[in-house]
Design a protein around this nucleic acid. Structure first.
Lengths: 184, 184
DNA sequence: GTCAGATCTGACCGATCGGACAGTTATTGT
DNA sequence: ACAATAACTGTCCGATCGGTCAGATCTGAC
């Protein structure tokens, strides 16, 4: 990150993100990335220390977004917390659609990845916020469903304009939680 | 499948399913499966033609379940179709929790896998059923959310008893669709 | 012009992958 | 008892993986 931005370097990142989202991390080889980028495999390892370093740099912004959401969430509770959790998570999922795809394709590796170290705690916080502070089955199930629904729908590419998608996802999530979208 | 059932053969299948669900298909080697099963790597390839053949046999029951759901769905429409789609899909996801995990971890490969050839058509049918026959943005988004919510929640292992989980998932899905759980 | 450092390449390395094969052990029908 | 077949193992194979390295090439300062 201390490195000055290079054209090839960012080109590599874009290619890698696309390939990781298409075929998964393990399903994408350095050879594939180099070929799509149009450079040699060694060039990748000149700009990045390892294949994992590419993944780390790709996931870091999303991880920071999650941390920011956590910060915005602390202090809130009840209906306000749930609403902020829903809108915040939807916006985040839409801003990092490809990253979410990558995440979902290698869950076991990602849950322990350093770039996403804060994720489990944030998810936990999101779940309790979505469940309105409850930890009993009825609410926790709905909270899990919201996280799953938003993640998968954001990762999928249905042909809906992003603004419509955002509004409908928020409305759907609030309905899932049993809260009226407009009047709390 | 024409082969007579063998104790080791089914042991292999169980081990492979667990490992695939934990680490993904590409993240699991034949060596890993052999080690967990307690046999040699060559024994795996005696009972199965290839690594992919193991995956195929693991996913076939789930694929058949989806085909059966499709059969049960044809002819229905409107609210009845949506309700049947929800309960049918929830039951299916809960019956094949580990298989759903495997599916989600290698989406690009699975979408073209022969054992799941009927899946895209079934998903399409499920989506239209869930959307109440509509193909416009408001309903299609909610339909996608339901599929995502059910799949992810079933794959995750929250500590909720399966009966409670089933009931809450159905209720949540119907709420997501904007339908009252009890009174249509 | 030329020198230094950044950038990039082709060739190569050890490890691991899925899979093949010959041969050995267990099982079974007669 | 014994042949025949099923079940299984150890070993080897080519391909591919992530990663290394010495050297070629490009670039700007002086």
């Amino acid at each position: 990150m201390a490195r000055p931005p290079s054209a090839l370097r960012e080109h590599i990142l874009r290619s890698a993100l696309r390939l990781f989202a298409e075929s998964g991390y393990k399903g994408t080889s350095l050879h594939d990335i180099a070929q799509v980028t149009g450079c040699s495999k060694a060039a990748l390892l000149y700009h990045f220390a390892s294949k994992d370093a590419i993944l780390t740099e790709l996931l870091t912004p999303a991880g920071e977004g999650l941390a920011a959401l956590r910060a915005r969430l602390t202090g809130l509770d009840g209906a306000a917390a749930a609403r902020e959790a829903v809108t915040g998570f939807v916006d985040l999922a839409l801003r990092f659609r490809l990253e979410v795809r990558v995440l979902f394709q290698d869950i076991p590796m990602m849950t322990t990845h350093p770039a996403l170290g804060a994720v489990p705690a944030v998810v936990e916080l999101l779940l309790t916020a979505l469940a309105g502070g409850s930890t009993a089955p009825p609410d926790t199930v709905a909270a899990h469903m919201v996280l799953g629904a938003v993640s998968v729908t954001a990762a999928d590419d249905l042909g809906v304009p992003e603004e419509v998608l955002r509004a409908e996802m928020i409305r759907g999530a609030l309905r899932t939680l049993g809260r009226a979208p407009d009047h709390p």
